[in-house]
Design a protein around this nucleic acid. Structure first.
Lengths: 180, 180
DNA sequence: GTCTATATGTGGATAGAC
DNA sequence: GTCTATCCACATATAGAC
């Protein structure tokens, strides 16, 4: 096989890791698996990224900050938020990998950060009043609950429900927290 | 050390496993750890329970069926449910171990079963109407969201909040799903 | 039933040739 | 930069003496 440049190899490894971590999670993805998918070898993976955990932290991340799609009247934020979460395939993989990997302390910290930035912050920014922060966190818990039921548990009845109905019903529910 | 009876040894292993799985989860608990805590050895652990996974499934379980504490008027069920979940230390350990271990298929199935029996069923039993099942499942998602935020993510602001306030606020929120 | 010793496998990480 | 070969730690599970 033709020899690739260092940067190209690095990218291929990063891409393979990103995919496998999202599909199988941290524990069930080995450095060997990543190397194989990247048509490389374990030694190179470590050379480029140091450790498996560092590679995970570098490839499994997420940011919804400054999400223009959430720029709707507060009264519509509940539905809009749920719609946004269900539409995004990337969120599912990242969320699952982080939750299931969260017995590793560094991964739990990353989950904390993403929970904060993706679920709490967008809501917090739209609320005011003395208890705005607490309300945003309760809303974030509600949001996380949907992802938990759908993807971690895999509640078959919910999974089989028309997403539009979930958006309407769960969105209305979330809206209750935002504008009681 | 005095030789113990087979049954006593079995119980000691079961007890050690139950504790370690709850405290550290499946992946971070080794058969050696369990054997050591039970003042026994790995061979016996396997002899008595077959595999580590079978031992996990036998020791990490939960049932809130026929919970008399939830025998309150429907209008109070939201608060009561949250109060019940937060008061029970056992739920926390079991929930965490199951969620974090859920990349193992059998453990995910167990989580599914417990989610169903502990979160969905008690609510489902109190609701009526064509969409009762769906509403119960949405309620279960909301419930799971609180445990997720508190224990999996470890949202520090929520963890530091007076449990009684959580009961009141999150209970009211849950109540909205039960009696809109 | 209980133990010691070990088979067997896997995975992260490293050494060193090219 | 990239590879092969391997070290090493640790895990589950088993064999066989007592």
């Amino acid at each position: 096989m033709a020899r690739r440049s260092g940067e190209a190899t690095r990218e291929e490894i990063r891409s393979a890791a990103s995919r496998l971590f999202r599909e199988r999670g941290f524990a069930r993805t080995s450095v060997r698996d990543i190397a194989a998918l990247a048509r490389s070898n374990p030694a190179l993976v470590i050379r480029h990224f140091g450790t498996k955990e560092l590679l995970f932290l570098e490839t499994v991340d997420l940011s919804l900050d400054d999400e223009p799609l959430l720029d709707v009247p507060l009264e519509q934020l509940g539905e809009r938020f749920v719609e946004r979460l269900l539409a995004d395939d990337d969120i599912r993989g990242v969320y699952l990998a982080l939750v299931r990997g969260s017995n590793e302390e560094q991964i739990r910290v990353r989950l904390q950060k993403i929970h904060e930035g993706t679920f709490v912050a967008p809501v917090r920014a739209r609320l005011s009043g003395a208890d705005a922060d607490l309300r945003a966190r309760l809303a974030a818990a509600v949001v996380g609950g949907l992802l938990y039921a759908l993807w971690v548990v895999g509640d078959e009845r919910l999974v089989a429900t028309d997403p539009r109905e979930l958006v309407v019903r769960y969105g209305a529910l979330l809206q209750q927290v935002l504008t009681p």
